[in-house]
Design a protein around this nucleic acid. Structure first.
Lengths: 213, 213, 213, 213
DNA sequence: AATGAATGAGCATTCATTCAT
DNA sequence: TATGAATGAATGCTCATTCAT
């Protein structure tokens, strides 16, 4: 069960990207229900019929779009996983990378956020399950290793700490890209913090450093 | 601009609660778009016409419902704010209370979660701002005070730490009530943790204790 | 599984009939697929939404319409069944009645004809099965009785002769109401016959008289 | 106005037949409206574009298909017309031939049946007129001749009797090939009759013999 | 000549909202 | 005040037809 029809893989990359980007933006901004196929078609400069030549239906188009968006996020995480530095250095690298990514691709983060309230069937065919599994594994393994080398204390549950860690990372991303979370961030910290990645990184690391060591 | 018409305040409390509870459940389970006024009317045993006698439109009804739900959460937070104990004891109290609340009122937590992707800005900048403001204030003040008494170290930004703290609290609640977050929690920690409040409390406190002291 | 919702039974008879008549005409003239709900709504002077308040969907609306039409035909047949006259007198009565009915309600006959090529599920929920069963029973019983009284010869299969008889009746009705069959009738007999019920009755009876006696 | 473009006459017979057979089957099984050009193209292993190179549009394609199907039926009738035997012997020959044909080519009979409810008048007044004219002429002439030789009684209208005769023939064919008429036949006579050509022939002849002589 | 991607009008159906009773 | 029938714009999706390659 592919997420798009063969036709979609054959069209010029430029057009393909245009369609996906329009769809990402629409779904991210309005959610699944408030996004209309006709709007996507119009904004992408193609016909409604074409969309149905490319995708089985609205739902699989959404899946495809989510898949694309999440793949990019997944890649980023994978690329960060390998570095074998100190856990806090690694944390800083990750935070900076995630924030940079959020600022650059707010639509993808919004889309991710939309996912959290979507009740599309079967956890979106496992797409979102996978990205969560990837981060879960990366963070848990990193913490476990750090426990072995003595960099992280022994009396904690690596999986649970990984979970808390990811929650913080996720929230920071939402806080820079999604309206509700942005507003909320602002209420807590005022304008300055919300715009200064340095402040965010510095304070978050302080929080984590203590928690881990 | 009131969230319900005068008529709604006049009807018997029993009926009022019935309507609000049905609406909360529907909006929480299906989201704003997938909830229909006719369904709410039918399940609440009243007519569609009545709903429009009570509320201006679907959007303000949603606002009202969110307002009601959030008020209950707000009250809980306020009640926890006063206790003047040690900050970590307080944290434990709060976590236990929030988890208990989530388990008991998953609908309200789901509703809260729905809010985060809703773009009904009229009240986004109203109701939800207030609840965030309340927790922001409580946590920030608590941390500031603890800094004064020396219970929390001096080199941190109270507002930002309050933000991180609340993120963790919010996520724990989502993780016990909302499908996506539940699944995600499970991926990280497996079945055992998701069902044991004690484990959650204990590990989370370890995380916080180190971070604060 | 009723063919219309309760709402439809509550509206004024005048309106009810108007809607059904428009629907009968549309379905009869254009067939199921070429009839659009929006057209029916417009021609009946009601809104599309109302149609869906009255009927579950297009298919059940069609069933209802067929049911209504066939009931009227069924009643006619039942009313003709009782008379205990000579079989040929009875045949004449029936032919005259059916022709009169066809001339007066060509839409219903057209609708019946549409049925014969419709592949709507389960033989249209048995609706059409019933009308066929009614005529089958009436004709077969009549022939059997006539065999007992010696009015019809003994060496024939009553059910099969009833079948041939009904075929002829049905064709005569189609030939007066449905375009294709009208044209065909004309090709065979020219203008005169197609318009003269007397000629049709007289010649058909000659045909039957010989066949039966 | 030819029913297909010149191109269609130039392609290899094998391909031509494949296309026509697929189209006949699709139109016969699903009716005009429920048959899609894309389906025909796919099942025939050609492109949609080709179909439009061969036929002006869906309607003329249908016409062509009907024409092909009816021609085959027409040929059969013509071949039966010449034999100069006794009228009842001829009738038996015809019935047996028509039944055999129906059992062998149910698609063509279904298609013929579809024609009766189609309102594509352009060709209704063309193709189908011709086949009806052919049988009308054959049957009428046969009866007239039989009247001259004294084989059929004098006091009947040959054209009208030919019409009744053809109705019976047509119905027998429909009763062996088309769902609605099959079901109806079964209701009248039960399983045995519907499957036994001998019984059908024998009883029908009894019916006709008396009517004619 | 053959292809099949592209088009867009058209259809069944839903649902927030109104209003006569 | 309460009702629920009526409305009609909007949506997802289909499919005959066209046309660039």
């Amino acid at each position: 069960m592919p997420l798009c029809k063969a036709t979609f893989d054959k069209i010029p990359k430029e057009k393909r990207d245009r369609i996906l980007n329009v769809a990402i933006k629409e779904f991210a901004d309005n959610g699944f229900e408030n996004t209309s196929i006709q709007q996507i078609a119009k904004k992408a400069g193609i016909s409604v019929g074409s969309i149905y030549k490319y995708f089985e239906n609205k739902e699989t188009m959404f899946s495809m779009v989510v898949h694309e968006g999440m793949s990019s996020l997944e890649e980023l995480l994978m690329s960060l996983a390998d570095s074998s530095e100190d856990i806090l250095v690694k944390a800083e690298t990750i935070i900076r990378a995630l924030l940079k990514y959020s600022r650059k691709n707010p639509e993808l983060i919004k889309l991710y956020c939309q996912l959290t309230t979507s009740d599309k069937s079967e956890f979106l065919n496992g797409i979102s399950q996978r990205i969560e599994a990837v981060s879960a594994s990366i963070y848990t393994v990193t913490i476990s290793k750090a426990q072995e080398t003595g960099d992280v204390r022994d009396d904690i549950n690596p999986a649970f700490f990984a979970f808390l860690l990811d929650n913080i990372f996720m929230m920071l991303q939402f806080a820079t890209a999604c309206d509700y979370y942005k507003e909320r961030f602002f209420i807590y910290t005022g304008k300055q913090a919300t715009e200064s990645d340095d402040l965010i990184v510095q304070q978050t690391l302080k929080f984590l450093k203590a928690a881990f060591e």
